[in-house]
Design a binder for these strands. Structure first.
Lengths: 220, 220
DNA sequence: AAAGGTATTTAGATTAGTCTAAAAATGTTT
DNA sequence: AAACATTTTTAGACTAATCTAAATACCTTT
């Protein structure tokens, strides 16, 4: 059995591994978890001894099969609780992250599955991220980040890669929600900002930082 | 802000204080929390410095006003989550305690109140214990002595009117503790003795002298 | 290949919570 | 009130997770 802290490390490595084949760096884990590199070194050593992480000195860390399974279970719990908070307790999508960070560590396999059932076996969380099933499986989504689209392209917002309160609040402010339509009206090369039209209605200009954190399914 | 561990200590002291005016003993706290007396001494000293516990060396501990408020908030959360687990997730009342022990430490005032609302502001948990409101106010329980109940009545033991060693030892011997459920199975008029079932498990016969010293909250 | 900069690891200290074993205080019995 | 037993506290050690500061390895640039 692993501690909550160990679970946090596994989850962080999982998140950072998404589009990186070789191991993730010690520094990047430290940044993700708001801790220091030396703490990370200690922990990945320990997780390596437990067989949950493949760690090579000076070369970085990746999850073992078992470590990945654990990470996926935590993510499953996190996302199911997020659905609960929004669907049942009427929280806004910008308020749920911190609470779910706590709830994801509750230990009870039966609880997770009952919750899943209670929520009607949802496929995605309120941020559009897929919820792994009991076995840790989840469908791969074909999506692109908004900054990959060209002028006149259209898409539907299906996910966000950042879930800080600030960011989500900002999205609310420009009427962007999951399912919103987005049309790219203009592109400004000097700072990579985009002028877009939201829901065929509101025109706003967004920075590259924003567009690179919005996942859309490209329409036609 | 206090740690989960500190919260556990406050809750334990609260529980043990129910029918004891002066401080609860270090050993009793240790037993309640499955830890050692030396650990308890350390912790009550710390909680005393924080102003949450009144602790006098060799004389025991009691909660300060502030410590009691915190304990009541934890108990409120514990009992609300228990209702959730039984009402919404269809758990049996015997499966929920360990999960609620974890859930009670989730930090989010908004979450607790939303949960309360979602559950329809329940008055008691699945074990019949009252749920404190936001301000920690406890509906006073109307209690009767056990000898006032009739055959087939059920109740929860919430106090004893005698605290002699002999008597309390006897109660320990028949597995009666505060919070124990009692079902009256039979009444023998010639000596007013009662046959009762304790905690849905042990059947014993008790004298009128005993039943008249047990305070119960009548169930339903 | 040497030099400098960055990333990473090591060494040693710190905090929260726990434990065992010994010492001190309290309570009980004669 | 002395002797014994019990309870409680103290002292010192341990584990998990963290940190700072110093040492080491790796990488890039000359």
């Amino acid at each position: 059995m692993q501690s909550s802290t160990e679970e946090d490390y596994l989850k962080a490595i999982f998140k950072l591994s998404t589009n990186i084949k070789n191991g993730v760096s010690t520094n990047s884990i430290a940044e993700e978890l708001n801790t220091k590199a030396s703490s990370v070194t200690d922990m990945v050593k320990k997780l390596s001894e437990k067989g949950l992480v493949n760690y090579i000195k000076y070369q970085g860390s990746s999850l073992s099969k078992e470590g990945e399974m654990i990470a996926l279970k935590i993510i499953r719990k996190h996302r199911l609780w997020e659905v609960f908070l929004v669907e049942k307790l009427k929280f806004g999508w910008d308020e749920i992250h911190d609470i779910a960070e706590q709830l994801e560590h509750i230990r009870s396999p039966k609880l997770v599955d009952r919750l899943d059932e209670h929520l009607g076996f949802p496929k995605t969380d309120p941020h559009g991220d897929p919820i792994p099933n009991k076995k840790g499986e989840f469908p791969v989504q074909k999506m692109v980040t908004l900054d990959k689209l060209s002028v006149n392209d259209k898409g539907i917002l299906i996910g966000v890669s950042e879930d800080s309160k600030d960011f989500l609040n900002y999205l609310d402010g420009i009427q962007l929600q999951l399912g919103s339509s987005i049309e790219v009206l203009d592109f400004f090369a000097f700072d990579k900002s985009l002028k877009i039209k939201v829901n065929n209605d509101l025109e706003v200009t967004i920075s590259h930082k924003v567009s690179s954190n919005l996942n859309v399914s490209k329409a036609k």
